[in-house]
Amino acid sequence: MRVCADPDNLPYSRTDGTGFENRIAAMIAADMQATLTYEWLPLRRGFVRKTMGEGKCDLFVGVPKDFERVLTTRPYYRSSYVFVSRPEDRVVSFDDPRLARLRIGVQLVGNDLAATPPGLALAARGITDNVRGFTVFGEGPAAQRMIRAVAAKELDVAIAWGPQAAYFSAQIEPSLVVAPAKAPSDLPGVPFVYAIAAGVRRGDQALRDDVDAIIDRRRAEIDAILGEYRVPRADREPGLPR
């Protein structure tokens, strides 16, 4: 079982095996009685082409269910973008008028001049001057830098993808408020919740079916792993958008 993964992108994967996708990969490989090997490459533009596209691996452990570059399995969790703020500010909605003046951080994927859903939502409301973008380049994942900036009061709010935001927020004392970001009504067609699945090469139905079966059979184990990493679950937790 050859898995392609980012060498340093917690909470998903890291070369020392400490990410939750490392754990799920090990579980899938064990179930299939296969030896697990990794091909490491930062998950940036060209990732699919340079990994699975060059035949270097069979499986991505986590990709959006609607990611068309690969054949996806059934999703094993859904998560959401979230607001992260200090308890005294407690920001939980795009309708909060304070967003016009608070210092806000968003992830800046930097591909095709594209924006993350929170970035689009803010821009649609004319909120740009107090928004700072965190690019993929820097010490550690962008979400980690954003959460640390909130803790250090360099930012007031971070609006980041749930699994990353919750994982890094859990490392902060005193604790931060993590709240799901419900899609604003004035931005139709921009999802804030994404289903996450594993991915195989397009056409590799046999492996897809095998992984589907494992996901079904070991759902409880997967849930336990995701719980350890505090992944916000839009498919399980009340209060999270579905």
């Binding site: 980012d6 992108n9 998903y12 930062p42 998950l43 940036r44 533009r45 986590g62 990709v63 959006p64 609607d66 990611f67 068309e68 992830q107 994927v109 930097g110 591909n111 095709d112 594209a114 924006a115 993350t116 859903p117 993929v136 994942p141 962008a142 979400a143 980041a160 993808w161 699994p163 990353q164 067609g189 921009v190 999802p191 994404y194 996450i196």
Partner: peptide, 13 residues
């Protein structure tokens, strides 16, 4: 929109 995924962050481009 198409769903994209960079550095573990899903978005629509």
């Amino acid at each position: 929109y198409e769903v994209s995924y960079i550095a573990g962050t899903p978005y629509v481009g």
